[in-house]
């Protein structure tokens, strides 16, 4: 399960719907095993001499679209659960260049101005996976397990 998902996943139990404590889940630092997958590479052609260039694949468009939706406090909380306390205290903001709008030229400027930040976000959100472990709802205390990277969110009949 990607770190990204921890920023959206909450407790399934119906009576936890209205609680502010059902998100984020509390990840167990003792049991959670983290794996980082290397960035994919994409091969493009060098326009100068036609040779192949290997470039890191970063899903810029997705990241630009998701950044507003990130709950940074939850990012910090879960990162801390998992033993990472080195993230910036507030959500990094994108460097805007003039009036950002959706035209593709501005879009590219936006990406170019924020490459390092977007690469960091790609690694944190998309390449960092919880492969084993468990997490608990801070409201009802229900524990969910992750095995082989798959969280088991099924509720027993008495909680469903």
């Amino acid at each position: 399960m990607k770190f990204l998902t921890t920023n959206f996943l909450k407790c399934s139990v119906k009576s936890c719907d209205i609680s502010n404590d059902s998100f984020p889940l509390k990840y167990n630092g003792e049991t959670c095993k983290i794996e980082q997958t290397p960035l994919d590479t994409v091969t493009t052609t060098n326009p100068a001499d036609g040779s192949d260039i290997d470039e890191e694949y970063i899903n810029y468009e997705f990241l630009l679209g998701i950044i507003d939706r990130l709950d940074w406090n939850a990012v910090l909380e879960v990162a801390q659960d998992l033993g990472n306390t080195s993230l910036p205290a507030s959500k990094p903001s994108l460097t805007m260049d003039g009036d950002f709008n959706e035209t593709s030229a501005d879009h590219n400027t936006m990406i170019n101005n924020n490459k390092a930040l977007l690469r960091d976000l790609q690694i944190l959100l998309m390449q960092t996976n919880i492969v084993e472990g468990d997490m608990k709802c801070k409201n009802c205390g229900h524990v969910y397990y992750i095995k082989n990277g798959i969280p088991n969110l099924l509720l027993p009949p008495h909680l469903a």
Binding site: M1, K2, L4, T5, F8, L9, K10, C11, S12, K14, F23, G65, R69, D71, N148, G149, I150, P151, N152, L153, L154, L155, A160
Partner: peptide
């Protein structure tokens, strides 16, 4: 898992509800 899909897959019963916070998905 064996086909190494890129998405996050989870064991869930849709009838128990979709456990994601408000406004998560496009």
């Amino acid at each position: 898992l064996e086909r190494e899909v890129d998405g996050d897959i989870m064991l869930q019963d849709m009838g128990q509800g979709i456990p994601f916070r408000a406004g998560s998905f496009d």
